[in-house]
């Protein structure tokens, strides 16, 4: 299902946000801040950019590698709305017997392209996919969502070297540059700026955007497609906790679920936002 207007994509991002709140609230644990900040990116990837058939996930399609697996509440929601599984199942997230594991696993679904959770692995897995597609002269592309915090991991930079060496221009990574990690801000825990200059020095095509701005995301993905001979890193500055006033920019919501009362407040804020988008 493709959504063609910014408004429709914004409504989908809003729906994803509401799901995230319901899911972590029902699970009584999980990671709300990260995926709330990524809602526009998930919306654009699954409803505008990527080519896939939810009825036939084994068919050749674009690859989605989620490196920071803890934000999976958002990607699960997008996958459910896209038609991979019924949205009602989202409330089984993190519960015993549910395929919606706390961190995504290939074991349970043919449309989950990597088992993730341990940070610093997804970019390298995406390189492997991109190299395989290249070997087979396939037109499909690899989309990899990475966090900023996992750039503390040396293995992420190993993958950055590899992708540039092999000129994997069928790989586009989107960094959730939200400036938070578990113990504080990224610049306090382990400074990363200028992350743009670092990636440029690693010989990547680097595009900086506001990661909560749908037209900017669309345009960056278009530029990535046009770039030949280099992998693309889209540095997407996002607001962690976006859409929920008390969560925004507060690293303490990285891995804490809202209680019922807080969840209700969050959902009413998101409902108000939805009305606003609809009226625009």
């Amino acid at each position: 299902m493709k959504l063609n207007s910014t408004k429709e994509l914004a409504l989908m991002a809003n729906a994803i946000r509401a799901d995230i709140i319901r899911m972590v609230n029902a699970a009584k644990c999980g990671h709300p801040a990260g995926p709330l900040g990524l809602a526009e990116i998930f919306s654009v990837l699954f409803f505008s950019e990527m080519d896939f058939d939810p009825k036939n996930p084994q068919k050749e399609r674009d690859i989605f590698v989620l490196s920071n697996g803890h934000v999976c509440a958002g990607s699960y929601s997008a996958m459910a709305h896209a038609g991979y599984f019924p949205p009602e199942d989202l409330l089984t997230f993190r519960k015993f017997g549910s395929p919606l594991q706390g961190h995504p696993s290939r074991k349970y679904f043919p449309f989950i392209d990597n088992s993730s959770g341990p940070l610093g692995e997804g970019l390298g897995i995406a390189c492997g996919y991109a190299a395989a597609l290249r070997l087979d002269n396939k037109p499909q592309r690899v989309y990899c969502v990475v966090s900023d915090g996992e750039h503390d991991e040396g293995s992420t930079w190993e993958a950055a070297l590899f992708a540039a060496k092999y000129k994997l221009d069928n790989l586009v990574a989107i960094m959730d540059r939200n400036y938070i990690q578990i113990d504080g801000t990224t610049e306090d825990v382990m400074p990363l700026d200028s992350i743009e200059e670092k990636y440029r020095a690693f010989n990547w095509n680097v595009i900086s955007i506001d990661g909560n701005d749908i037209p900017q995301i669309l345009s960056a993905l278009k530029q990535a497609k046009d770039c030949k001979g280099k992998p693309t890193m889209i540095i997407a500055k996002t607001t962690p906790g976006k859409g929920v006033s008390y969560m925004e920019k507060n690293y303490k919501w990285h891995g804490v679920a809202p209680k019922d009362e807080d969840a209700a407040k969050a959902l009413s804020e998101l409902a108000a936002e939805r009305k606003k988008i609809e009226q625009e």
Partner: peptide, 11 residues
């Protein structure tokens, strides 16, 4: 992990 990605893609 590159090997894992290659394997997931059928290599």
């Amino acid at each position: 992990v590159v090997a894992a990605g290659l394997a997931y893609a059928g290599k």
